[in-house]
Simulated assay, not measured.
Amino acid sequence: MTDALDKRDFETLSEFRYQLRRFLRFSEEAAQAQGVTPQQYLLMLHTQGFDGRDWATVGELAERLQMVPHGAVALVKRCEALTLVQRRRGDQDRREVQVSLTAKGFEVLEKLAFVHRQELKSAGRRLRVPFRP
């Protein structure tokens, strides 16, 4: 390691992790208040996270959620059972599974995204990491 850490670096990392955890706890509680799990909220959010389309593949969701593909499949199935999402085969590649929101899923996501945006507006400054270049 060529760039030695000093006390201020540890303080900065600690503060960032604290503020990140505060935001994640807020997110967990907000999701539960809407009757979904934090992972279900994130799955719904990530279906809307790709430019120019309102769906995501199971593989993309697994990557965004940092989980193994079969775990993502199980989460999609649970969301589908709650009528939050729907699956369909890809038009170009029939092996591809595209996941999109139902009207109910979009309504839940919209409520959660709104409160998350408000929280980020107030917590945004605290989440910046001021490391020296």
Rank of each mutant, 00 (worst) to 15 (best):
F114A: 12
Q92K: 13
A72M: 03
R78Q: 11
L43I: 05
G105A: 01
E80A: 10
S100K: 09
A33L: 13
Q32R: 15
V58P: 00
V108E: 03
A4T: 08
Q39F: 15
M44Q: 00
L61T: 02
F114G: 09
S14D: 07
A56Y: 04
A103S: 09
L42M: 14
V115Q: 06
G59N: 14
L65A: 06
G59L: 14
R126Y: 08
R53L: 10
D9T: 05
V73L: 08
L120F: 12
E119V: 02
R78W: 07
T83M: 07
S122R: 15
M67I: 15
D9P: 02
L45M: 07
Q92T: 14
E107L: 07
A33W: 01
Q48N: 13
T57E: 10
E110T: 12
E15T: 09
Q19Y: 08
V85P: 01
G35R: 12
E119M: 02
S100R: 12
S27Q: 14
E29D: 13
L61C: 01
R78G: 10
P38D: 01
M67P: 02
K77H: 09
L120S: 08
E119Y: 12
T47Q: 03
G71F: 05
R22S: 04
P133D: 13
L82E: 15
Q40I: 02
L82D: 14
F131V: 13
L24E: 07
T47R: 03
S100T: 10
Q32C: 07
T102Y: 04
G124H: 06
G35S: 11
V85H: 03
L45D: 03
L5E: 09
L45K: 02
F50P: 01
V36Q: 02
T83W: 07
K7N: 11
G35Y: 05
L120K: 01
E107S: 11
V129G: 00
A72K: 07
R87V: 08
F106W: 05
P69C: 08
D91W: 12
K104H: 10
G90P: 00
S14V: 10
Q48A: 08
A123T: 03
E110C: 02
L45F: 09
P130K: 11
L75R: 02
E63M: 10
R87W: 00
E107M: 05
Q48F: 07
K111D: 12
F16M: 05
E110K: 14
R8P: 03
Q32K: 15
P69Y: 08
L42V: 08
E63W: 11
L101Y: 00
V68A: 14
K111I: 06
R117Q: 09
H70G: 11
R8Q: 15
D51E: 14
A72N: 05
V97C: 08
D6Y: 01
F114C: 09
W55C: 06
Y18D: 07
S100L: 11
E110G: 06
Q32N: 14
L109F: 01
F131Q: 10
C79A: 06
S14L: 08
E29Q: 15
L61K: 06
D93Y: 05
T57D: 00
E63D: 15
A113P: 03
V36A: 04
R64S: 13
A31T: 04
A62L: 08
